[in-house]
Design a binder for these strands. Structure first.
Length: 271
DNA sequence: CTATGGACCTGAATGC
DNA sequence: TGCATTCAGGTCCATA
């Protein structure tokens, strides 16, 4: 379920409460996308200094190393002081003096990976090729436009690839392209600077808005039961095949790109 | 280097 | 009702 906004809202939901906590135990469950990369015992005694985010990864900064958490397609995190016994799809518990951080992930595309922070560890590889942070300052229109140079793939797929800009998942890719009035199928390197500017602004706005509204939606998230609150995303086009475009009432169209669904308005997104 | 399809895994929805 | 197929908010990896 998680694109950048969900990950960021998740981060905000427990970062302050876990800060300063000492790890009492780590309990891995069924295998996740990648191995933990250390023994659970070696995490005991570490202090969680901060929780940051890079793309869709959460980074638990420890006093020694970093714990990377990715939610994959179906993951969510809960943080509570008296967690119930792990359920069928709970696959990692980090027990701390402030509470237990629990990863719930039915499909197990998520991961918890320890990194020593050295150059040669696996985590470096995971984070190394990530693109610009969409809500950060380095993500400016010129840099974005430059990033599209030489990319002959459809713009939708370049957005999803995450090596130009991170955090834009399948939903927000469709939404941002709709907002920018750009056809998902156009070659990325054929976007004029003006159109790249529009898309840049749309990406920022769509994600920032989702974080804001997630923040209010998920006020109770932390105290809620294991699986996260869902965003009721009021999508303009995503998941609305055949329904009228909110701008012009033309039926929204559904196509497949790289075995993912893409939604767009054939009238508002002409090129 | 870029682009593409397959792989990972479970559950819900859809189709016959 | 049962069983098969398709799809789901991610992304790494092998191959062309």
């Amino acid at each position: 379920m998680p694109e950048l906004p969900e990950v960021e809202v998740t981060r905000l939901s427990f970062a302050e409460r876990i800060r300063g906590a000492r790890v009492l135990a780590a309990h891995p469950g069924l295998p996740l996308r990648w191995p933990l990369g250390c023994t659970p015992e070696s995490l005991v005694g570490r202090t969680v200094q901060d929780v940051q985010r890079r793309g869709k990864y959460l980074l638990l900064q420890l006093d020694h190393g970093v714990l990377l958490v990715h939610l994959g397609m179906s993951g969510s995190l809960g943080f509570r002081t008296a967690p119930a016994a792990p359920g069928r799809h709970d696959h990692f518990d980090l027990v701390t003096t402030h509470g237990t951080l629990r990863l719930h992930d039915p499909r197990r595309f998520g991961a918890v990976v320890w990194s020593a922070g050295t150059q040669v560890d696996p985590a470096r590889k995971l984070l190394g090729s990530l693109g610009m942070e969409p809500l950060g300052e380095q993500f400016d229109p010129a840099a974005f436009h430059a990033g599209l140079r030489g990319r002959r793939a459809p713009i939708k797929q370049v957005l999803l690839a995450g090596d130009v800009v991170v955090g834009v998942g399948n939903i927000y890719a469709s939404e941002a392209l709709f907002q920018a009035g750009i056809r998902p199928t156009v070659r990325a390197d054929r976007l004029s600077r003006a159109r790249a500017d529009r898309l840049h602004a749309a990406v920022r706005q769509v994600l920032a808005r989702a974080v804001e509204r997630g923040g209010s939606t998920l006020r109770d998230f932390s105290s809620a039961t294991g699986d996260s609150g869902h965003f009721q995303l009021e999508a303009a086009v995503y998941g609305r095949a055949g329904q009228p475009c909110p701008q012009c009432a033309t039926p929204v169209r559904l196509i497949r790109q790289g075995q993912r669904s893409t939604y767009f308005c054939p009238r508002c997104q002409r090129a």
